[in-house]
Amino acid sequence: MSAVLRARGLGKRYRRRWALADCTLDIPAGRVVGLVGPNGAGKSTLLGLAAGLLTPTTGTIQVCGERPGADPAQLAKVGFVAQDTPTYARLTVAEHLTLGSRLIPGWDMRLATERVRRLGLPPDQRAGSLSGGQRAQLALTLALAKRPRLLILDEPVAALDPLARNEFLRELSDAVAGREISVVLSSHLVSDVERVCDHLIVLVGSRVQVAGDVRELLAAHHLIGAPHLDPAALPPGVHAVSADRTDRRTTLLVRADVPVDGHGWAVTPVGLEDLVLAYMSRSTPVLEEQR
């Protein structure tokens, strides 16, 4: 598996606060990767470092095999849609496309104008008077028309209403379908990720809690329930991720390399939302112990 993004001991400090500390991860090429985690997990920082907007305090990061933002050629390989999808408020939609064509070698003007037309963005309208959804679409168009090898989206739909959110994610799926492009999309909403991503990375406190193909992850995780279940006494190959206890019943979310049927437990399949929640909450006690 070749990595389109490779971080080793990556850290970023703002004054005294570490926004990302000692992060090591690989993001596979050719996939649509969802990066989820709670607020403050370091998602935006990681993606900012990947786009070359930030410089690491410690460690290294390589995107498409090179240091991010090193030169114009490297910039052209990475499409980046920043949080809140910034655009120049006083420039029109058409002027944004002109801007791209003047700065980016290999800019695909046909793709850009075609998308703008299809989305119904008025070319003469200033970006400042577009709706949030339209602005996000414009930002996505700018990133796509670079014909990047890696497309990075940092919470692109966080500020959008459900309708615009739906529209944006559908557009994104259509745009990347059948193309030689890797995508990393960060979100704190699992439902967004579930719609468009085929690979998942859960990042909590700069650490990768779990990473893998969405279908494989779902196949390997189960909810098992029984009146009395000791997470420490599970058979080999079965690991508890989280436990939910009531007086009458214990429910464990487990990761299993072996079949889990036939132990007298009630086994139910797990949804992605629950899976992510289990891994996100799992890290909390670890943090408490450190205090």
Partner: peptide, 16 residues
């Protein structure tokens, strides 16, 4: 303030 540097810096190097 407007965050547009995050757009500009993906289109050209910040030095330029």
């Amino acid at each position: 303030d407007a965050g547009t540097h995050r757009l500009a810096w993906t289109l050209t190097t910040r030095t330029r």
